[in-house]
Amino acid sequence: MTSAGDGGTRPLPSVGGPGVGGPGVGGPSAAPHDHRARRSPQDEQPTTVIGRVPERHAVNPQPRAPERAGRGLRGIEMISGLLGGGLLLAGLVLLVLQFVAPALVTAGRGPGWSAVAVHLGVGAVAELLRAVRGRLGPPARWAAATLVIAAAIGVLFLVWW
C-alpha cells in the first residue's frame, strides 16, 4: 500500500455500492451478465412450484392491522387474569401448607389434596390461556376469559363453601 518514495498511504480502491466504482463494480452501470449486478427484490424471493412468490415472502406485503380489543374485552380479560393468577397462587400456598403444616390444612374441613390439585389445574390453564390470547381473535378471547371466570367461580364455590 505504501512505497518508500511517497511517504504516506494511499486510499483503498472503492468497494461496490450504489453508484460507486463505475462499470463492473456493482454500481448501476454494472453489466447485466456481471454476477455483481444489482438484482431486483423479486430475484431474492423463494418461489413455489408454479412460480409465484408465497404471500409471507411477498416483496411488499401489506401488514394486517391487529384486531384491537374493545374496552369490555380488556376488562373481562383483566378480571379473568386476576382470578386465574389468584387461584394459581392460592394453589401454590395450599401445596406448601400441605407439606409444611399438615395439621393446619387438614384440621376440620381443610381443602385437602383435591383442592390443591383443582386450584393448581384451573390456575395453570388460566395462565396458559392468558399467554396465548395474543394469537386469538376477539371471539375466542371472549370465550377464554368467560371460561376462566366461570371455572374460578366454580372452584371457589365448590372448595370454599
Rank of each mutant, 00 (worst) to 15 (best):
Val132Asn: 02
Arg56Asn: 09
Asp6Cys: 05
Pro13Gly: 12
Leu156Val: 15
Phe99Ile: 12
Val93Glu: 02
Leu12His: 08
Gly21Asp: 06
Arg56Ser: 11
Ala101His: 08
His57Thr: 10
Pro61Asp: 10
Pro61Lys: 01
Arg135Val: 04
Val116Met: 05
Ala145Lys: 05
Pro54Ala: 03
Gly123Ile: 01
Asp43Tyr: 04
Ser40Ile: 02
Leu87Gln: 09
Leu158Pro: 00
Pro54Phe: 02
Pro28Asp: 09
Pro28Tyr: 06
Pro23Ile: 13
Ala31Met: 03
Leu136Val: 02
Val148Arg: 03
Pro46Phe: 04
Arg68Val: 15
Val159Lys: 04
Val20Arg: 15
Asp43His: 14
Gly22Lys: 08
Gln45Glu: 12
Gly17Ala: 15
Thr106Ile: 00
Leu88Trp: 12
Ala4Ser: 14
Arg56His: 10
Gly19Phe: 02
Gly112Asp: 05
Leu73Cys: 08
Gly17Arg: 15
Pro32Val: 01
Gly154His: 02
Leu94Pro: 00
Arg135Ile: 02
Val122Asn: 07
Ala115Glu: 01
Arg39Phe: 02
Val20Asp: 03
Pro61Ser: 07
Arg135Asn: 04
Gly27Ala: 14
Val100Cys: 02
Ala124Ser: 14
Pro66Val: 11
Ser14Ile: 05
Ala30Cys: 14
Ile50Trp: 03
Gln45Lys: 15
Arg141Glu: 03
Ala65Trp: 00
Asp34Thr: 01
Asp43Met: 10
Ala31Ile: 00
Leu88Ser: 09
Leu89Asp: 06
Gln42Ala: 13
Arg52Lys: 08
Ser3Asn: 14
Val159Thr: 13
Arg130Leu: 13
Gly86Leu: 11
Ala140Thr: 10
Ile79His: 02
Val93Cys: 03
Ile149Asp: 07
Trp160Thr: 11
Gln98Thr: 13
Met78Trp: 05
Gly91Phe: 07
Val122Glu: 09
Ser29Cys: 02
Gly137Arg: 15
Pro139Phe: 07
Pro111Ser: 14
Gly84Val: 08
Met1Ser: 11
Leu136Ala: 09
Val25Phe: 12
Leu94Thr: 02
Pro13Met: 08
Trp161Ser: 09
Pro11Glu: 07
Ala115Gln: 05
Ala152Trp: 12
Arg10Met: 01
Met1Cys: 07
Gly84His: 04
Ala58Gln: 14
Leu136Trp: 01
Thr48Leu: 10
Thr106Leu: 15
Val96Cys: 06
Gly75Ser: 13
Gly5Tyr: 03
Gln42Tyr: 13
Gly24Glu: 04
Glu77Trp: 00
Asp43Ile: 05
Ile76Gln: 11
Arg133Thr: 04
Gly16Met: 12
Val53Trp: 02
Ala117Asp: 04
Leu92Trp: 05
Gly17Cys: 10
Gly85Asp: 11
Val49Phe: 10
Ala31Gly: 04
Leu92Met: 13
Ala152Tyr: 12
Ala117Phe: 01
Pro66Asp: 08
Ala69Tyr: 03
Asp34Trp: 04
Leu12Ser: 12
Ala107Asp: 05
Ile153His: 00
Arg38Phe: 01
Val132Met: 06
Leu73Trp: 10
Ile79Arg: 06
Leu136Gln: 06
His35Arg: 14
Leu12Val: 07
Ala58Pro: 04
His57Asn: 15
Gly123Met: 04
Thr48Pro: 00
Thr106Gly: 15
Leu73Phe: 09
Val148Met: 06
Gly91Ser: 01
Val15Gly: 05
Gly81Val: 06
